[in-house]
Design a protein around this nucleic acid. Structure first.
Lengths: 228, 228
DNA sequence: TCAAAAGTGTTCGCTATACACCCATGG
DNA sequence: CCATGGGTGTATAGCGAACACTTTTGA
């Protein structure tokens, strides 16, 4: 019999953090899922997640999960919703603080539990455990909403990238098509990108760029609002 | 000694819902605060909130708080963040699922605990209990962000309102000034408002309008995006 | 040699902004 | 009679959408 050492006057729910980990393969937006090894929902795919420790906040918990699954430490992470439907876990009352992370696929080494983990293209995700379908849907929705107005897309691309790659990313996430030439001009006009390999002579190898975070912070401070 | 009836194998945090209740008096954005009657922070002002019950989700809990404080039942409510810093409550580990509500001041009767409650103008809010300063700041920020792109402002106005009132509301929330005439035209062009008292003859009593939620749903469905 | 890709221009129409005008009301 | 407030009109600038052109690379 288990020892039930932690006692309270009133019932307390369990608190977990779940983490929707997004990556981009150059064409499609991907999400990392884990195959469950135990009941309930044994064998079903689920979002990475785990119990919140008493000495960490939700973000730290989510970052810990991320590291366990991908080996990554510095990735972009954002809390977006807390799911609290009373019967969302059949065992006991569990609420989960859901986050999404944006990672560069190239940097993902594969974490400790990588054997059970796999990347799925959005749109080819099977039915998930618990209410994770709903969590994934809302994560995708929130990511779309956020990327309209904040430069988080760069977190999914290599540090250096071409405009074409950037455009593909935006098209994949927002599910739209941009005119290539207008997109180039817009990016150029924004002045948020630093060109790496100059030389206007050696064209037809595409220019590579880096995102200029300082410049963005400066513009934002002046009331500038990014928009797609 | 209290009876500690609810026992778990691992420690569980307490879970509360806090509720930032916004109102609009025609000029200023207001927030409802409660004076604490017990330690810790006895005598300090705080956000309405309370423990999440085991048979309700977070939204229901927040709506229950709202009703207790204002008597209102159908108001607009939105979860915006969960606060989880380990020592945010000095007594024990407490995480709080924070919401904001938008109410019509005219409809607020005053709830059961109204004696301890009071409306404060944003900007004249005293130092609050716990991390409620931070919660209020984020709520205000999120409300600003949301109102840029969604027609939630109408939740703060009487069902019927003049364009001038609507403009005052937007100016108060976003802390900007619009040109009166351009604002009129924009509202008219949007076709989201239904005019109540027609008769172009009897002018100089301002026209009253209602928000047309169906029209908005229809436009949104077609990819329309509201913006201020 | 020719198709595909990458960088640069040009035009047009919409809309946000700035500002003018008219009319009714009430002191 | 005139200040105030409410509704409508007009001109301009800027930006985004649509579309053309040139050069280089590699099959």
């Amino acid at each position: 019999m288990e020892e039930l050492k932690y006692c309270y006057k009133y019932p307390h729910p369990s608190v977990t953090t779940d983490c929707v980990i997004f990556g981009f393969d150059g064409t499609k937006l991907k999400v990392l899922l884990i195959e469950r090894g135990i009941e309930p929902y044994k064998g079903r795919w689920a979002l990475p997640g785990g119990f919140l420790r008493m000495d960490e906040d939700a973000m730290q918990g989510a970052l810990r999960e991320l590291k366990e699954e991908t080996g990554l430490e510095g990735a972009y992470m954002r809390q977006f919703h807390t799911f609290t439907t009373p019967d969302r876990d059949p065992r006991e009352r569990v609420i989960t603080i859901a986050h999404y992370a944006l990672v560069r696929l190239q940097e993902v080494a594969g974490g400790d539990d990588a054997a059970r983990a796999s990347w799925f293209s959005l749109g080819k995700v099977p039915a998930l455990a618990f209410d994770h379908d709903q969590i994934l849907r809302m994560a995708t929705h929130e990511l779309r909403r956020q990327i309209h107005f904040e430069p988080v897309g760069f977190e999914l691309l290599p540090k250096q990238f071409t405009i074409k790659e950037l455009q593909s990313l935006y098209e994949a996430i927002l599910d739209v098509k941009f005119d290539r030439r207008n997109f180039y001009k817009k990016m150029q006009h924004l002045e948020l990108l630093t060109q790496i390999n100059g030389e206007p002579n050696e064209r037809k190898q595409p220019f590579y760029f880096e995102f200029n975070a300082e410049k963005y912070a400066e513009l934002k401070h002046k009331g500038f609002r990014l928009e797609f």
